[in-house]
Write a protein that binds this DNA or RNA. Structure first.
Length: 512
DNA sequence: AAAAAAG
């Protein structure tokens, strides 16, 4: 069942009769970053900026040359044939490289996308969105317009990537066909469940069914062989379960026309889920000539980026320079602690005392064991904290997350389980109890994990603060490398045991 | 080191 309903090339696939919205927006315009509409109505939107968006389409076939799209806030016209290179100093926030000659126009409104009335209702009534965020404005036409090219999309943390692929899945699925047509693969169970919640909210009026392919808790566990085949149109899950369902022929691939990898850089990294992900792609391709692949993440390091551009053939690409990835509303700090014990003292004396008044906090640690150790130390001192890590039972993981989401707990200790994607708007504080380092190294920072961790605060442009606890020279050097990598200066909170200094930091972050 | 998987 192809998308034969529409082939007028310039307009996205309509799932309802096309409105009078008409032809695409004018071509030569600019866009600017920072126009994400918040979900809480009391935050102002920057409606004032006249922002007409447009993506210039460039052919990269033979020459394979990459040309920038538009400068962000500069008044300069878009790059001409001479094209500024990707590494230009005045790069735009998002660089678009389109493949082929399909013209794309940015969506100024959700109406521009020719979505079904039911889906629009979900967007406005359930999600309370007003207009597309930047990444949504740019990527959605690319996702929805035939010939439905593959897409690699990088965008800032908390900028609304989930909406992009959820909308993509919902609008490309045919509710009358009772078979999986959209598949989304996520690195953690928690993220799959969270994405599922978004999809069900947004798709509430569409009648589209969705199922979560994640390990079940012990009480409702059914062996794969005993479960019925999936008939839901959308499946969101984690690699192991998805592979298993496919292996047992419970998840058919023949109707899947859109395959999404959330946190795609990690899903396709050697150190991550590369084998699983490639397996899933291959299994679908075996029975399925044309399946659109979407790769979303806030980060793509050079190695992964080089690889994923080969995985997606002839696809469109949206990238952000690493120096422009750290969020402006997020203030980063470092605290030099004389020893490890001082780290605990900072957490109980400062974070737990001051921090609770400014919102919720996530403390990242580097192992399950240190999570448990820190948890024990704080609980023994009489503080209420919870901890999540992968060794917990599924039902306990659920409970911890649910309590945190409900605001019943203020401080959550976590391994990198929650480093990516976890979207809790009340999180204003992120603590790096230990800085993330690359696997098998002692002093090489994991820049991507760092960025994802701190992105748990400051969702959708909110204010937030990050405290990096540093106690020896090694950690000092890691911090310095991180600062250099993202071209940010991380202010020191000093002295480490000063309440005033922490208050000042929180004030500077706009949290006090 | 973490994550995913009833391998």
């Amino acid at each position: 069942m192809a998308d034969s309903t529409n082939d007028t090339a310039t307009t996205p696939t309509p799932t309802v009769p096309a409105s009078e919205a008409g032809p695409a927006a004018p071509k030569e315009t600019k866009f600017s970053w920072g126009d994400v509409v918040d979900e809480s109505p009391n935050e102002e939107t920057k409606e004032a900026e006249a922002e007409e968006l447009n993506i210039k389409s460039l052919t990269i076939d033979e020459s394979k040359k990459k040309i920038n799209d538009f400068a962000d806030d500069s008044e300069e016209p878009a790059a001409d044939g001479s094209g500024r290179r990707l590494d230009d100093a005045e790069d735009s926030s998002i660089t678009a490289v389109t493949s082929g000659d399909t013209p794309y126009s940015s969506a100024k409104t959700f109406e521009d996308l020719n979505l079904s009335a039911e889906l629009l209702k979900g967007i406005y009534v359930e999600m309370k969105f007003q207009k597309p965020s930047k990444i949504q404005a740019i990527s959605l036409p690319m996702i929805l317009t035939p010939p439905h090219k593959d897409l690699i999309a990088q965008a800032h943390n908390g900028s609304g990537k989930t909406t992009c692929f959820v909308l993509g899945m919902l609008s490309r699925v045919d509710p009358t066909i009772r078979a999986p047509q959209a598949l989304c693969v996520c690195p953690t169970r928690e993220l799959a469940i969270q994405n599922m919640a978004v999809l069900q909210k947004m798709g509430k009026y569409t009648g589209i069914l969705a199922e979560c392919a994640v390990p079940m808790d012990t009480s409702n566990h059914v062996p794969v062989s005993k479960r019925p085949p999936v008939t839901a149109q959308v499946v969101i899950g984690t690699p192991g379960t998805i592979k298993n369902w496919m292996l047992y022929k419970k998840l058919g691939a023949s109707h899947i026309k859109i395959l999404v990898f959330d946190e795609a850089d990690h899903m396709l990294a050697e150190d991550g889920f590369k084998d699983d992900s490639l397996r899933i792609i291959k299994d679908i391709e075996k029975v399925n000539s044309r399946c659109q692949v979407l790769l979303f993440s806030a980060t793509f390091n050079d190695t992964v980026r080089n690889f994923v551009t080969r995985v997606t053939k002839d696809g469109n690409q949206l990238f952000v320079k690493k120096e422009e990835l750290s969020l402006e509303a997020l203030k980063q700090f470092k605290v030099h602690c004389p020893d490890e014990l001082a780290k605990v003292n900072v957490i109980k004396g400062r974070i737990l005392e001051l921090g609770e008044s400014v919102g919720q906090t996530i403390i990242f640690v580097h192992s399950r064991h240190s999570a448990a150790a820190l948890h024990k130390a704080l609980v023994e001192l009489g503080y209420e904290v919870t901890t999540i890590q992968g060794a917990l039972r599924q039902e306990d993981r659920n409970k911890i997350i649910q309590e945190f989401q409900a605001g019943l707990t203020q401080v959550l200790i976590s391994t990198d389980l929650l480093a990516r994607g976890f979207d809790q708007q009340q999180v204003n504080l992120v603590i790096n109890y230990t800085l993330p380092v690359k696997y098998n190294t002692r002093s090489e920072p994991d820049y991507e994990v760092y960025l994802h961790r701190i992105g748990r605060a400051g969702r959708f442009g909110r204010k937030g603060a990050v405290f990096n606890l540093i106690c020896d020279n090694r950690e000092h050097e890691i911090m310095a490398k991180i600062e250099q990598h993202f071209a940010v200066q991380v202010k020191e909170v000093t002295p480490w045991d000063s309440e005033e200094a922490f208050k000042d930091a929180l004030k500077e972050a706009g949290l006090l």
